[in-house]
Nucleic acid binder design. Structure first.
Lengths: 192, 192
DNA sequence: CTCTTTCTTGACCGCTCGGTCCAGAAAGGG
DNA sequence: CCCTTTCTGGACCGAGCGGTCAAGAAAGAG
């Protein structure tokens, strides 16, 4: 009935996600996006509405991707504690470029959440989701006798969630890696 | 010999600090600063050079202020562990406005450090300083028998530094407070 | 008082920002 | 094949950006 889109909106969203993730919201201009996505300005607006809406869509996509990846990591049958440990350690060991980029949710929490309710809600949802997944894994660990007595899965999960956010912050600086690694190992000592 | 300044550069810097702290670098315009500082645009440029230099000066000032406050907190003679605990807890319990503002160093780490070497260096210096202060306090605690055997003060300090950064991140969202509180208490369990 | 020097003020600069518009291209239904 | 509909590309928009400048006001030295 009418002309079809020439570009793949999903690929465009992914490209936008990567740019916003790397540079943040304010520091990314529409001109940057036009260049990176390889499509015209008007097509971006026709497809995504506005810069802010595009950002929020990208954030949503990021959350979906990392949520499903973490669900996979933490829900494998068998021992639960090693999976938790592995996840925390993976946050702690990153190369410098990865560290500079950090976590898109963390970045959004700091840059936009304080004055953007929609962004804040998504950040909150993402943290909740991670906390829930970790709590479930730790509860499973407790049920399987992997956890010392007297540890509360939810409280432990909260500590880990907060610690992971901190790791993404200190990872932004040049020599953040050793700090992050030590911090992760020390926190994991609470699981022994 | 010549006309004297009519405004107090120190007060102006403090006002700029508060504005940058609240809104971040990119989201604060020179027009905002002119309005808030109550002095003319050109006077700001004559005194501080550029928006970026003003920001870095404000950051430096913030670091000096919080460093000396924390030095006072952590260097009081007597038991060292309660001071550490109190500091961590003070990070964890904040009202909503304080939470939204967060920590200026954390904010800078996320927004500017990845692409501004000068900002990155200052963030790093501030984290180093906090780590050093905490390490010293924990070493003192260990020497006074307040700490369980087998705990390394530096590693513990790194864990706390990272955790505090995380607290400042989750505090940005609406219901971050309970998460932060639980996380702090759980982490402090490592000091028992 | 006058001269020199610095500070203050607000108009002004070129540029980039996010966002819109329109003319033309392309695709499918009749 | 043509007509309707949507998409594309780029020129274009007003607003706001960071930064500069020139003219006048004020203060101390002589």
């Amino acid at each position: 009935m009418a002309r079809t889109k020439e570009f793949d909106p999903d690929a465009a969203l992914q490209a936008a996600l990567e740019l916003f993730w790397q540079r943040g919201y304010e520091a990314t201009s529409m001109a940057d996006l036009v260049e990176r996505l390889g499509i015209a300005r008007a097509s971006i607006y026709a497809t995504f509405g506005s810069k802010r809406e595009l950002y929020l869509r990208a954030l949503e996509r990021y959350c979906e991707q990392s949520d499903s990846a973490r669900l996979l990591d933490l829900s494998r049958p068998g021992p639960a504690l090693p999976a938790v440990r592995a996840l925390v350690r993976r946050y702690a060991v990153t190369d410098e470029e990865e560290g500079r980029r950090g976590c898109f949710v963390t970045n959004t929490a700091v840059e936009l959440a304080p004055h953007d309710p929609a962004a804040s809600r998504r950040v909150e949802a993402s943290l909740d989701r991670l906390e829930t997944l970790l709590t479930a894994a730790l509860a499973r660990a407790a049920a399987q006798g992997e956890l010392p007595a007297g540890r509360d899965p939810r409280t432990l999960a909260r500590m880990l969630v907060v610690l992971l956010q901190g790791i993404r912050v200190v990872g932004k600086t040049a020599d953040g890696a050793p700090r992050a690694r030590d911090a992760a190992e020390q926190a994991l000592a609470l699981l022994d």
